[in-house]
């Protein structure tokens, strides 16, 4: 089966890539930092979307896996001095392992109970990390080294490119996954788990697989976060981060590839771009969540833009000006 490639989409994609490659060289360190956070949140949102959007597992404790990834990677790097690539993978594996345990316990529950159980487990994990001695307790882990690249410590721009490449690989793999047979099975489980199991699908095994995969990605994101920030503290991984990730997925559009990416960028960049908004970040997240569920239940991506009067009139004008269709 050969897929036709739309030339216009290809050009758009190449232009976007060129922009993403060029832009870190002409902006300040601060903006690069925001871009790296964007990348990390895209990883988190995409991984949560695999659970919520494609399989119908509403996890409210996603931050826990982010936290475990960050701590695993940070502790290995600072206490044992292990190189970054290994810490990175270990962060993912650590999160996936705990994710498997959590999944084993919770995946048989119905949706709302699963949401609260995962949230509870997330809090339990955070509180244990905050009180345990091997994680430095409330002091957090400081002095996490930047990864080495060709004999020198990575600069922020290099780190940005690493994150960019990882995000691109992730998005490619996820889009391959959801368009595969497995992806279709997952959607069937989301729409009707009983029907799926009566057709011979091992629902629990699929859910478990996707849970492990999603937690693995969240753990990788945690490792990147810890390494980039060079300091982590358990109090940074509160429930509100989980809610922010949920907001990104819900506002962008659950069950789509581009939705969580757009949501993550929007919610990460907007408060920074509009200065006076940054104090009201959490408030904006709340309002955006409510509005998106009430008026755009399929998210920004699923919105029928042409039905909004303002945009419709703009489209109309463009049409008459250019004399061609948009």
């Amino acid at each position: 089966m050969k897929k036709k490639i739309n030339p216009r989409a290809l050009i758009l994609l190449l232009a976007l890539l060129a922009l993403l490659t060029a832009f870190p060289f002409c902006v300040s360190n601060y903006i690069i930092q925001i871009a790296v956070y964007c990348g990390i949140y895209i990883m988190l949102a995409v991984s949560l979307n695999l659970l919520v959007g494609y399989t119908g597992i509403f996890s409210m404790g996603h931050v826990a896996f982010f936290c475990i990834g960050a701590y695993t990677s940070a502790l290995l790097a600072t206490k044992l001095g292990i190189a970054f690539p290994l810490c990175f993978i270990a962060g993912g594996i650590g999160a996936a392992f705990i994710g498997a345990l959590v999944g084993f316990a919770t995946l048989r529950l119905n949706d709302i109970f699963l949401a609260f159980t995962t949230m509870g487990l997330g809090e339990v994990i955070r509180i244990i990390i905050q009180n345990a001695s091997f994680t430095n307790g409330a002091l957090g882990v400081a002095g996490i080294p930047m990864p080495m690249l060709a004999g020198h410590k990575m600069t922020r721009i290099e780190f940005y490119f690493m994150v960019l490449i990882l995000v691109l690989i992730l998005v490619y793999l996820v889009s391959r996954l959801v368009h595969s047979n497995t992806g279709r099975t997952l959607k069937m489980i989301r729409d009707d788990a009983n029907a799926a199991s009566s057709l011979g699908v091992n629902v629990f095994r699929y859910k478990m697989t996707i849970m492990i995969l999603s937690c693995f990605v969240a753990g990788l994101a945690g490792s990147l976060y810890a390494t980039f920030l060079q300091y982590i503290n358990a109090s940074n991984f509160s429930i509100s981060i989980s809610i922010n990730i949920i907001a990104m997925v819900a506002i962008g559009g659950m069950g789509t590839i581009s939705g969580p990416i757009i949501g993550a960028i929007l919610l990460q960049v907007l408060p920074e771009a509009i200065r006076f908004l940054s104090n009201y970040r959490q408030l904006m997240f709340g309002i955006a969540l409510v509005i998106s569920i009430m008026f755009a239940p399929r998210g920004l991506v699923g919105l029928n833009w042409k039905r909004i009067p303002f945009i419709a009139s703009v489209c109309e004008k463009l049409k008459t000006n250019n004399g061609k269709e948009i």
Binding site: V52, F58, D111, I112, S240, I243, I246, L283, L289, I293
Partner: peptide, 28 residues
């Protein structure tokens, strides 16, 4: 204003909506 109009939608979405309200009320 809210829960009446979203009564038919999936439980996950309505839970997300109440989370949004909670966040909004707390921050306000």
């Amino acid at each position: 204003i809210a829960f009446k109009s979203i009564r038919g939608i999936s439980r996950i979405s309505s839970l997300i909506c109440t989370i949004g309200f909670s966040q909004m009320l707390n921050e306000l």
